[in-house]
Design a protein around this nucleic acid. Structure first.
Lengths: 160, 160
DNA sequence: GACAACTGTAACTATATTGGTTACAGACGG
DNA sequence: CCGTCTGTAACCAATATAGTTACAGTTGTC
């Protein structure tokens, strides 16, 4: 298949922003959490901004934050923002039009692939960023329960 | 995402064999219908043979045919035979373990991706190669209704 | 047994997509 | 104005799939 990590990274990024609770995050800090280059993050933030999922501020003290409340952003929104193609692709080159199977297999396959895509979308539409944060917290609360710094301070003090 | 066409090609190949009705097909003829190189087909046939979906015969008058009846081969069987990874991947490099989000996002994402994979598999498990052939026939019957050569003859006389 | 027709498979190249990096123009706050 | 950010172009690296050539081995047929 050769899937990309774009969806996983995008969910990670938006989860960080939900965690930071309206405080704009710098691409450099996000990149440290994701463990990649700030430009990779900024590229993705541009796509997410085009889909109206985040808003960014240039200049000093700038950064990016969620454009809506975490409960109003579904994983389907994110999926559609960063993944261009469906789950599967058809043939690289069109099949032989002179073969009774080749000439029509594309039509049947497209129907099947649409069913698959719909199933994926139904799952993703039912999970919000708020849900992801909720499912994250049980793990985190035990991990950081000794001292109790604010969530925001945790995110902003990330270091490798 | 960067999906591959492996699944589409594999379905095409097995559909050809169901269409040919137990007559062994040569990789060269299959390649003509799929519009690719015979070696690409033979590579895929090896994978399908390992998964016990086809059987091949070397030597003169050899070829490949289905190992089971078309109604006993689901698209899930094919998917699992040719697609190694799931629909999505996690981060290329593991996230920052010192970030409260980074350290646990993988766990949550894996749960989500498992849900997605399950949904895909449920769809594919309910479609057989026989179903694909059935959905193909209405299109074909109109396309070749002038003369009525046998289905087998059609497949075996494919030319570009 | 010789031969022609096949598959199986190695080795290589081509192509495409994603991810990583450097560099820099432009926006913005103080 | 100056330091701190984003936006973006341009390039390279890494990976996966597809395509190609070549050839060893198997099998039916004469």
């Amino acid at each position: 298949m050769s899937t990309s990590s774009r969806f996983a990274v995008a969910v990670h990024v938006l989860t960080l922003m939900a965690w930071a609770d309206d405080e704009p995050l710098k691409s450099e800090h996000v990149a440290e959490s994701v463990n990649t280059n700030p430009v990779v993050i900024r590229r993705m933030l541009c796509e997410l901004a085009e889909s109206k999922l985040v808003v960014s501020q240039t200049g000093a003290m700038g950064g990016s934050k969620l454009a809506r409340q975490p409960e109003q952003i579904t994983l389907l929104d994110i999926y559609q923002a960063v993944e261009t193609r469906g789950v599967f692709s058809l043939h690289r080159h069109p099949p032989n039009r002179h073969c009774p199977v080749g000439v029509n297999i594309g039509t049947v396959l497209n129907e099947v692939l649409d069913e698959v895509d719909s199933a994926v979308e139904r799952v993703l539409a039912n999970i919000t960023i708020k849900d992801v944060v909720s499912r994250l917290k049980p793990c985190v609360s035990t991990a950081v329960s000794k001292r109790k710094p604010s969530a925001k301070a945790q995110v902003l003090s990330v270091r490798n």
